[in-house]
Nucleic acid binder design. Structure first.
Lengths: 334, 334
DNA sequence: TTGTACGCGTTATCAT
DNA sequence: ATGATAACGCGTACAA
């Protein structure tokens, strides 16, 4: 029809017919059918995004940047939760592929073999975020979870702490948390810290679980000097529980978090944490997908956006400047 | 083809052909095209959901329940942010309609006239959540923001407070916050509380803004006795700032929040708040959409799921039992 | 500048 | 139990 032309390329149509079409559209309340459009043009202008969960989730805040970028370019986001289950993720990828999304955004780099295979055979632009995978499905943008955890633990060591506990969230199917744990152990070994495994716990991602785990930790190891939590919510829960029990932070127990959430800066004492470029990661992930879709050359396949340790009141302050271990410059691997 | 039948209704096909098709599918990595399917069958098994924002947003947590319900029934969620702009919402609704979503989920009941008109003319099942609109577009499930705010203010009044301040988040294009403010004023008037408008502020939805506004409030009205924040994040920010300034809560200043977030129960002192049935609202909204899609009779068009005031340490404890004003029974209007 | 014919990959309907 | 044919509503390519 001429209608299609009028709506897509108004300048190719005479002002009169343009007006006629506009009138008809108004009169009938016509709304173009994007399904038919997508079927014919072979593009949906939709990106499928999979995040573990929306609850207390940092991953959710990454998608803000993604959405901004996509929206500006006329793209939309189809959202799915994997609940940290690779099989659920696989089902979602299948679903997205059957809807012919133009790109796929995955959180982390833990996927089933079938997921990787489907994605690669399909050739759909894919970006993995929050990790620096050795073997990316396609593209990736994130930071080194290992380095960040190593740096925080090293910071504690250099401040003279010898008994540093670690709370991670569940590491199952979550290579980010696994990497953080590895970084911790590496620093423990390198700096000769107490390597008692009872200093390490896996904690559910909520304040109450953190509080309970702090109590248990203090029973196991009442001599613990510092606590590194690989999530600000966990750290907040521990800090608030310490407050309730009259444990002084950082004098009796130093605490550091991870993520750089707003709450870290507002607790009393304010919480030392690892700031990660959440928004930037989302924005860049969106841009990389768009570039790939538009056939532009995409520079590096794995982009490291770094992190920054923010030292606040919850850890001792006598910190050598060079230990802040800022790595916020962009590094491109491969 | 027979293939379509095999995939949709395997029982209508002989085991042999079934096996042949399965083999071919495996061999070619065939993934059905839902676009074509939707075009032909006239259903997308997708619900379009619009929430104001994912940042610090309670609205985001409502969609958890929605997603659960839909997922279980083979439906997916297409998510959009309106950023509290009715015009952006209208654009999203148009976009969703052009993608032929089977249902639409809107946060609140503030929409442009065109949005209402489009939705009604289109006849797509629609549910509005978190409010009890007088004139719903289609269906709605929520609670009375007015009653909840009235109840909290009354609680303060009955406890003997005469100077009760109010922090709401921005009320522009947000009838939930407007209703809460109205409920506050109604109780102020009814119980003869101090009606100085300088006791009322609109605060951005973050901890720092809350802290700054508390400081400003204390300068304007150092004699303020209680503070009602229509959001737990605001209340948390105020409470943490009070802590920093050595203001005792609740002795010097009582504080109550709104939403029933996890953090409310973990702050020191723990925060009195209004618990709202977030998950239940999401679940029911999803169920109502599915029922309407499946042609089942949907009972009431506006469902009130109530709320509950949870009294904790941040407000005085000498509270008559009947003032807890629980309204957690389900009420159906119209 | 406008119109025609065909194809996109399914489902629906009717026949075999 | 299987196959043939016509939609679904739009883009693409070409013709008028």
């Amino acid at each position: 029809m001429t209608v299609s032309r009028t709506l897509s390329f108004p300048h190719l149509v005479s002002p009169e017919t343009r007006e006629k079409v506009a009138a008809a559209v108004r009169a009938t309340g016509y709304i173009p059918n994007r399904l038919a459009s997508s079927l014919a043009s072979n593009q949906t202008r939709t990106i499928g995004a999979i995040i573990p969960t929306l609850r207390n989730s940092i991953a959710a805040s990454f998608t803000d940047g993604l959405r901004d970028t996509l929206r500006r370019n006329g793209y939309h986001v189809l959202l799915g939760n994997s609940e940290f289950e690779p099989e659920d993720e696989e089902a979602l990828v299948t679903e997205f592929l059957s809807r012919r999304v133009d790109g796929i955004y995955l959180t982390g780099s833990t996927h089933t073999e079938r997921t990787r295979q489907m994605l690669r055979e399909n050739g759909v632009p894919t970006v993995e975020i929050a990790s620096l995978p050795q073997d990316p499905v396609d593209m990736a943008v994130g930071f080194s979870n290992y380095d960040a955890a190593y740096a925080v633990t090293r910071m504690f060591a250099k401040q003279g702490y010898a008994k540093v506990a670690l709370f991670t969230t569940f590491t199952k199917n979550n290579e980010r948390q696994q990497e953080r744990q590895k970084g911790y152990w590496a620093a423990v070994e390198e700096f000769g810290l107490d390597s008692d495994p009872r200093l390490v716990s896996e904690v559910a991602m909520d304040l109450k679980a953190a509080a309970q785990n702090l109590i248990a930790l203090l029973e196991r190891r009442p001599d613990v000097e510092a606590l590194f939590c690989t999530g600000d919510f966990i750290a907040a829960g521990a800090l608030l529980e310490a407050q309730r029990r009259g444990i002084r932070v950082p004098e009796d127990l130093a605490i550091a978090g991870f993520d750089g959430l707003e709450i870290a800066d507002n607790l009393n004492p304010s919480l030392t944490t690892v700031q990660i470029p959440r928004h930037e990661i989302g924005v860049l992930a969106g841009q990389m997908l768009l570039d790939r879709i538009n056939g532009l050359p995409v520079g590096g396949r794995v982009v490291d956006l770094g992190f920054e340790i923010i030292c606040r009141e919850s850890t001792a302050k006598n910190l050598p400047r060079e230990l802040t271990f800022t790595s916020l410059q962009t590094e491109v691997h491969e």
